[in-house]
Write a protein that binds this DNA or RNA. Structure first.
Length: 434
RNA sequence: UCCCGGGUAGCUCAACAGGCAGAGCAGCCGGCUGUUAACCGGCGGGUUGGAGGUUCGAGUCCUCCCCCGGGAGCCA
């Protein structure tokens, strides 16, 4: 048995010790009699230093030959050295290859085009930038779970195969369910409304599918949403909850993943400043005026396009709730404002810096009469929604909820322009491989 | 679906007005005891996305198709 096996992220506690690291060869450099290996192990990257004096001869020889992405076990002494990236390095005693690649690894440390990288996504995720983003993704999802746990929400699940269309079939992926038409869910919301009447405050993190043929940096056909629904929550409770969630997530990531944010060139201080104070809050009508005032044409009744969202986020420099949209451009399940039935008690949360809408939420229709009349207004059939209507017959209460777009949130926190890098294997229009 | 841009070596790109298809990196060989995408010297590397057309001659011009990227609409 060799020295104790440790992970790179634990090295600060092992300075002076001889340890074993199991990982992959990320890069190597040589200056003749001194050779440097960069080894990664999933928790970080480590510089290993090999010299003829300190390193066992056969291992020293291998340092000059092993190709990129060789899986290997390295044994050496941990030491702190300011010349090492990360501050710690391993003085290599010996190494043992696990598997040596025959050819050259497709992804080098040089430039590559996006198309090439996407075709090699299964290997691309081993590179430093992707490593940082995916570890931030992990932190975002943990933060969401921790937040809801603290707020007393119950974790639950929604079906992914559904028979009901939420708003028209064009955005749904159809499925043959033993001869019955079925779809991949575009949101768990309707089911969450049922579940919150049983468990009070509920949330789930699950996939959502949109068959829309959109081709932008903000869209995936398969993406993840953190959805919450709470009985007895009105519109105001809903916004307060969302604001606490977003602030919690950002503060959590800024603390737990500072190193990764730094690597991405993201200024954690700026992020924290953006969520520190109360979020901006405007009505849809005010938002339209602001957008117009910044030179982006749009009329009352239009939905916000990407340029309009960018204009808004540029105006405030912090997250913005846009409330009270015209009912006509929002789905059937949103509750009308009591003082103005042409608008609904909803809000979209627009992220700062042009990252777009990260939350959509609303107070829901809670009476059977309203619900049936709105389904009719939207020309939707009542039959598939029978169970949903049923909820309004048996102790219906005011309730509200929202869905947070996980990838857009990660893109904003990471400061990456395209959300395809925020999920291990993005599904997009014309992108099903790998 | 629409509007742009592109497809040349393993990768990133160049090639004037139609006239011998090139560079950097990667790879291989050699050098270097503190490298940071290391550096220095040498070597090999091509059905120019596909099909057809114009021409003495096509990477370059024309037609169709395929693929990729950027943006729009729709949304989280």
């Amino acid at each position: 048995m060799g020295p104790r096996v440790v992970y790179i992220e634990e090295l600060r506690d092992h300075v002076g010790d001889e340890v074993t690291i199991r990982g992959w060869l990320f890069n190597r450099r040589s200056s003749g009699k001194i050779r440097f290996l960069i080894v990664r192990d999933g928790t970080g990257f480590l510089q290993c230093v090999a010299t003829a004096k300190d390193t066992e001869p056969q291992s020293f020889e291998l340092c000059e030959r092993l190709p990129q992405e060789t899986s290997l076990v390295v044994i050496g002494t941990v030491r702190a050295d300011p010349r090492a990236p990360g501050g710690y390095e391993l003085l290599l005693s010996r190494l043992q290859p696990v598997q040596v690649p025959e050819g050259q690894f497709p992804i080098t440390l040089k430039e590559h085009g996006v198309g090439f990288l996407m075709d090699h996504r299964h290997l691309w995720i081993r590179m430093r930038r992707q490593f940082a983003i995916l570890r931030i993704r992990d932190a975002v999802l943990w933060a969401v779970r921790e937040f809801f746990k603290r707020e007393g929400f119950v974790a639950t699940e929604c079906p992914v195969i559904v028979g009901t269309q939420v708003e028209g079939t064009t955005t749904l992926f159809p499925l043959d369910y033993f001869g019955e038409p079925a779809y991949l869910s575009q949101s768990g919301q309707l089911y969450l409304e049922a579940t919150c009447m049983a468990l009070g405050k509920v949330y789930w993190i699950g996939p959502a599918f949109r068959a829309e043929k959109s081709k932008t940096r903000r869209h995936l056909t398969e993406f993840w949403m953190a959805e919450a629904e709470a009985a007895y929550f009105d519109h105001e409770d809903n916004l307060a909850l969302q604001e606490r969630l977003v602030r919690y997530v950002v503060e959590y990531v800024a603390t737990e993943r500072r190193r990764e944010l730094e690597f991405l060139g993201r200024d954690a201080t700026k992020l924290l400043a953006e969520v520190k104070g109360p979020f901006a809050r405007v009505t849809y009508a005010e938002a339209v005026r602001i957008v117009n005032g910044r030179g982006v044409p749009m009329e009352y009744g239009d939905d916000f396009g990407a340029p309009a969202e960018d204009a808004l986020s540029g105006h405030f420099g912090k997250p913005i709730f846009v409330e009270r949209f015209p009912a006509k451009i929002k789905p059937f399940y949103m509750k009308r404002a009591p003082d103005d039935p042409s608008v609904v008690l909803c809000a979209d949360l627009i992220a700062p810096e042009g990252y777009g809408e990260i939350i959509g939420g609303s107070q829901r229709v809670d009476t059977e009469e309203e619900l049936i009349s709105q389904l009719r207004e939207y020309s939707l059939p009542l039959e598939p929604y029978r169970w949903y209507i049923d909820l309004r017959k048996w102790g219906s209460v005011p309730h509200s909820g929202f869905g947070l777009g996980v990838e857009r949130t990660i893109a904003w926190i990471c400061g990456v322009r395209h959300i395809r890098e925020t999920i291990p294997f993005p599904r997009m229009l014309d992108r099903l491989y790998p």
